[in-house]
Design a protein around this nucleic acid. Structure first.
Lengths: 213, 213
DNA sequence: GCGCAATTCAAACAGCATTCGAAATCCGTC
DNA sequence: GACGGATTTCGAATGCTGTTTGAATTGCGC
């Protein structure tokens, strides 16, 4: 019972993910719509996941895992390239923010799932542990601390973590407040070119980790 | 008709603001609860504001105005202190991020209204113009461009706007993803001391505006 | 082919925001 | 001071929402 490997459970997750990507607003995501797209009934959501919220959380977790795998793969590449020397700072930063930027600009990616999911965390009562478990799961972020400490050994771990957190804030601002970014830069930055954006972000984040700030 | 200066309209806004501050999740904010607290009926919301969404937008706009006034006042002070010399970079940054940080840590402030409001923008269909009008209203942010350009004349306006945007991203991360900030810094930063946080933010943002990054 | 567990489904339920039309109130004018 | 039109209030109704429930159906080891 409540098997997550079930066929209709899978179909529900796929339908939910697809619907989250297609719909502009969270209110477009309804249990009935999900059910129709998965050739099931709303009750199936409750049966397999407990509630709609948990279904969305399961979908978000699946997407997060894919994104984090990409991030960690890029980090590993950056570390390996220079080992045993410290990795290139700019490459590490690009590994941290690059996947998010590229996903957010790729219309075929499931990035909308993630931005909708964090918004959902504010809507529902947080005693439900779905959100914190996923949002606060930062093991994949922690993996960046050691390499960064090798790049900037004069910073202690708190300093590194703080700067990491700031870098993630910049990332979120760019991926999630695009219109504000547009207005502030007077529409004179090409926000559709991921590599250009990433370079711009590296340019701003790297100095945080250099001496003589 | 539809007078925004009406007494019950005011009571509805006050009730909505209070309820937004008290409630942990957006789902706790219902038209009925707002109405009860304002000694009115749900229909009054529709009559005076059109819909609940518009009421929340009106409340958010009111709070935004207060916050922006505080920001601009600090900016003016920073500029005046050094005029006609360029202002102190760190003081300008503190003016930009300080009020948000202090508000977010002050339990008597209405800061929760703002974080709830931006979350709401993701929930409802965006053809409603409430959100963009408020969120994209960055005249108060634009006011920081000229002083910052005097501090860092080698940056063009796009560079300044981009860095401003990055600074706002860091600000949002700290005020709105507190738990993630806690985990990343290993709970070894005192996130309850606004002045310490502001100093930490200045330390990270200032290098963006210094030469020889 | 039986029998039990797992799964599906239609109907019902409580809650929501919003609409509507009738009451009630306000306020300038006679 | 009483009338009359506009403004404001309010209770009931509407059509959504997610979830629950209990019966019907299916799958599957024996």
């Amino acid at each position: 019972m409540h098997g997550r490997t079930n066929l209709t459970a899978m179909r529900l997750m796929d339908a939910c993910e697809h619907l989250l990507c297609e719909s502009a607003a969270l209110e477009d995501l309804t249990a009935r719509r999900i059910a129709v797209e998965a050739h099931a009934t709303p009750s199936a959501i409750a049966y397999h996941f407990g509630c709609q919220e948990a279904l969305v959380a399961a979908v978000a977790e699946r997407v997060y895992r894919r994104l984090n795998a990409e991030r960690l793969s890029l980090l590993r590449r950056a570390v390996d390239r220079r080992a045993p020397e410290p990795p290139d700072l700019e490459e590490v930063i690009a590994a941290l923010v690059g996947p998010s930027i590229r996903w957010s600009l790729d219309p075929t990616s499931s990035y909308p799932v993630l931005s909708h999911f964090t918004a959902m965390a504010k809507v529902h009562r947080e005693e439900a542990s779905y959100y914190r478990r996923i949002i606060d799961d930062i093991e994949h972020h922690r993996a960046f601390i050691a390499p960064l400490k090798r790049v900037a050994p004069w910073l202690d771990e708190v300093d590194i973590g703080w700067r990491l957190n700031c870098a993630l804030g910049i990332r979120s601002q760019v991926t999630r407040s695009r219109s504000r970014t547009e207005v502030l830069t007077n529409n004179r930055m090409d926000l559709n070119d991921p590599e250009l954006i990433i370079a711009r972000m590296v340019e701003v984040i790297a100095p945080m980790f250099r001496r003589m700030a």
